[in-house]
């Protein structure tokens, strides 16, 4: 089967006016403006297959949103090729737009003063969804996200989490095949994040939809994405299984030990990260993990011991800092 998204050497450069601080520079720049080229996305290449859920990771300003905007037809690429479902997104053909959706966690498309139900109706009209199908999809989503009691309230009276759920319903009513989700869980509490995550996973499963997701919450990525693409300064640093990312970049493991004698000094075994209630957390180089574990068990009276990979957040941090140095 052919890829849903193919991106080849895709770049987007912006010309931004540049001037030094101060009034004089401000006046000079009125007449003689200097521009600087910012390479927001710099020759990236990847493919995404049907039904894949891919996490798109990177620090702020890495080029994630710019890439999503090129994919959803909002920005014209400076160079390179981009195709989604066989369409060139920037042509904004209606046939293409009908098959995709864009969700931005920090922005709303629902009308503030209207009940969400009315906004859904507007989506139906815009996408020309047949009424029966529309009602079926809408009720299915309302059910899945448990929104029944809220759809008649004006959107402005909903909580942030409730509103985001409504936003997602509105964005998916036309059953898009490709989902571009830009921080869909931004600012939500843990329970709400999980709800939305489960819903996206369910939508993906039922419709074999392809999802490209950016999020600052690693929990989202770990729960939804088998594969991640890491982007930094407009370039791709890593593209592959999340587990490989962990293996490749995680130099340490975390050992949690509970000892019978809580006062034992453990710094000779590894870097002590924390100590509370007799439970000690140690950071140990990955290669030495089994050695240290064996030593701990033979040297001391151990009640409990667990070995964990470093949190993905930390690993991502390391990926960025390593590449900065390189």
């Amino acid at each position: 089967m052919s890829s849903v998204i193919t991106i080849s050497q895709l770049s987007k450069h912006y010309q931004v006016p540049e001037r030094e601080g101060g009034l004089k520079a401000a006046i000079t720049s009125l007449f003689n403006r200097k521009y600087r080229t910012v390479k927001a996305v710099n020759s990236i290449t990847f493919n995404i297959e049907p039904g894949e859920v891919v996490g798109f990771l990177g620090p702020n300003g890495a080029g994630k949103t710019t890439t999503l905007k090129m994919l959803s037809g909002l920005l014209h690429p400076t160079s390179g090729d981009v195709r989604v479902l066989g369409y060139e997104p920037f042509r904004r053909s209606y046939d293409y737009l009908r098959q995709i959706t864009l969700v931005m966690g920090n922005r709303n498309q629902l009308t503030w003063d209207l009940p969400a139900l009315d906004s859904f109706d507007l989506q139906r009209a815009v996408y020309g969804i047949p009424v029966d199908e529309f009602k079926r999809t809408r009720d299915e989503f309302i059910d899945l996200l448990e929104l029944k009691d809220l759809v008649n309230k004006p959107v402005r009276n909903l909580s942030l989490g409730e509103r985001m759920k409504m936003e997602i319903v509105a964005a998916l009513l036309h059953k898009p095949k490709v989902l571009f989700l830009d921080e869909p869980t931004l600012g939500l509490d843990v329970t709400m994040q999980r709800r939305i995550r489960v819903f996206i996973a369910e939508y993906n499963r039922r419709n074999n939809a392809t999802v490209l997701l950016t999020s600052h919450y690693m929990a989202d990525v770990e729960a939804l994405c088998k594969r991640v693409i890491v982007i930094h300064h407009g370039r791709i640093l890593f593209d592959g299984d999340l587990s490989n990312l962990v293996n490749q970049f995680s130099a340490y493991k975390t050992l949690s030990v509970t000892l019978q004698n809580p006062d034992t000094e453990l710094s000779q075994y590894g870097e002590v990260l924390s100590k509370d209630d007799g439970r000690v957390t140690l950071r140990v180089p990955k290669a030495q993990t089994s050695q240290v574990t064996a030593k701990l068990l033979s040297d001391l009276q151990v009640d409990d011991l667990t070995v964990e990979d470093a949190p993905v957040d930390d690993i991502i941090d390391q990926v960025f800092s390593q590449k900065e140095e390189a």
Binding site: K69, S72, L74, Y94, I100, L102, M104, R107, Q109, V126
Partner: peptide, 18 residues
Amino acid sequence: LNGTLDFALTKPADAQAL
């Protein structure tokens, strides 16, 4: 101003009309 025009531009309809 808010960037929410993105939503109108990703709809399968003439953006000016919309």
